[in-house]
């Protein structure tokens, strides 16, 4: 695959939102997230405990920490994907601007349309072509006009830096692409529904360094339009792409994960205020 010329097309969201049911036609799409007192359970097991933090709009926030400390769980609570797991249950509040995602009358489906997600392993729909994969979110929601669809697909693929590689084979199956291309296809699919927040769960852990670089460049471009939260095990990656970094840890195996600190990425990586963070970052853990 070609590394993809980093031709930045960060046209700020000048386009009018073409969705038919935007709750509010906002010109700034990105929103801020405030988490307060959030505890998540798997059945009787407490996975994360009493987490309070905030995610700034139009910036990249990285979650780092050892395996099993609840980074991914926290990420999944942010668009109500946690409760899809059998036994998944949440206490506490997640405010998207001024709306509680766990309010009684909130529809989880609407939440997921507003807050998109990219998963660890690229997962394009195997029965669909590249075009259909990108269009899937709009089509499956029955929320599109045929004429606009071509434009949205092109714009999303360009937004994911994939257009030049696939424009001649949009009808081919998406599973025929390389791993890195598939992951960018998944990002294109996620941004096609024009979410306000993009959650990424270790998006590069299954990719080679070149594809990782392509995705990291892409994250840098996307943050001008979206609020991005990324979970990563790669400390250098967190340092490269994120503006703010949150460090999570668990006191012992089987104990719930906790937020140790969240701060500007530069501070976390130069002089964090908690000793455990420094130990973890410098590899002197445990």
């Amino acid at each position: 695959m070609s590394p993809g010329p980093a031709a930045p097309t960060p046209r700020a969201p000048a386009h009018a939102p073409s969705r038919t049911h935007p709750e509010k036609a906002t010109d700034t799409m990105a929103k801020r997230i405030d988490v307060s007192g959030l505890t998540a359970f798997y059945g009787g097991h407490r996975a994360i405990d009493d987490i309070s933090m905030s995610v700034e709009p139009r910036s990249v926030t990285a979650f780092i920490g050892p395996s099993g400390c609840g980074k991914s769980t926290l990420l999944r609570t942010l668009n109500r994907m946690h409760e899809v797991t059998p036994g998944g249950r949440v206490e506490g509040k997640v405010m998207l601007d001024h709306e509680d995602l766990y309010g009684t009358s909130v529809d989880p489906v609407a939440v997921r349309r507003t807050i998109g997600m990219v998963f660890q392993r690229p997962n394009p729909f195997p029965t669909m072509s590249i075009y259909d994969n990108v269009a899937a979110g709009l089509r499956l929601n029955g929320d599109f006009r045929k004429k606009e669809l071509d434009g949205i697909v092109e714009k999303s693929l360009k937004g994911a830096n994939l257009w030049n590689e696939v424009k001649d084979r949009l009808g081919k199956p998406g599973s025929g692409l390389s791993g890195g291309q598939q992951q960018r296809l998944c990002i294109a699919r996620a941004i096609a529904v024009q979410p306000q927040v993009l959650l990424m769960d270790e998006p590069c852990s299954a990719l080679d360094p070149i594809s990782t670089l392509a995705i990291e460049d892409l994250i840098g471009e996307l943050k001008s339009r979206f609020t991005i939260v990324i979970v990563t095990h790669n400390m250098q990656q967190a340092a490269r792409v994120s503006d703010r970094t949150a460090f999570f840890n668990l006191s012992a195996v089987g104990r719930p994960g906790k937020l140790i600190e969240i701060d500007d990425t530069e501070r976390i990586f130069s002089n964090p205020s908690v000793q455990a963070t420094e130990d973890y970052i410098s590899g002197r853990f445990g």
Binding site: V111, G116, M117, F119, N123, P124, F125, A136, L140, N141
Partner: peptide, 27 residues
């Protein structure tokens, strides 16, 4: 059918019944 496909569809804001009908069954 891999669970990831269901999650991918749900994360796009597709309701569960449409996920079953349009993603799980065709696969």
């Amino acid at each position: 059918v891999p669970n990831e496909l269901r999650e991918a569809s749900l994360a796009l804001g597709v309701p569960k019944w449409r996920t079953v009908l349009k993603v799980v069954l065709p696969t």
